[in-house]
């Protein structure tokens, strides 16, 4: 897959970082403002897809990128499972127990374990969607060879 014109490349250079930052903002503020792990993860994956579409597939090493995103995806879902199981070790011993101190409502560091769940589910969703997109591109290039 070839890249696009110079105008698209320049615009992507300016925008992609901001899209990435917006995704991180949505994930980190997931327990305060609308959004959360799923929404922010999809936005982060969108910024990577924008880069790949604008600069073409030889700009990034796609196979290496894909193995990295697969690793992050599986590690993130594992961490979410461990966080859920950790509720069985403390307090009233319930699966998915929110045993961290809650803090004051409205602060950035509050709500116990909800921000951690948001962050790791965000990583998992972003890596999943990026992996599917990369798998499609790599498949097309392997066929055309």
């Amino acid at each position: 897959m070839k890249g696009m014109t110079l105008i698209v490349k320049k615009t992507t250079q300016l925008i992609a970082g901001m899209v990435f930052m917006y995704g991180i903002y949505i994930i980190v503020h997931g327990h305060l403002t609308p959004g959360g792990g799923f929404a922010g993860g999809v936005v982060i994956a969108g910024s990577f897809i924008l880069l790949i579409l604008a600069f073409g597939s030889d700009f990034l090493n796609l196979v290496k990128e894909e193995s990295g995103s697969t690793l992050y995806e599986n590690l993130a879902i594992l961490v979410v499972l461990f966080l859920a199981v950790s509720g069985l070790l403390f307090g009233t011993r319930v699966f998915f127990l929110n045993w961290f101190p809650k803090g004051t409502v409205g602060q950035l560091v509050s709500a116990g374990m909800l921000p951690l769940y948001n962050i790791f589910v965000g990583i998992e969703v972003a890596a999943s969607i990026l992996t599917i997109f990369l798998a499609l591109i790599i498949f097309k290039e392997e066929i055309s060879e």
Partner: peptide, 9 residues
């Protein structure tokens, strides 16, 4: 839940 966003809670 301590979360200001009800949906996340």
């Amino acid at each position: 839940t301590g979360s200001a966003n009800l949906v996340t809670g």
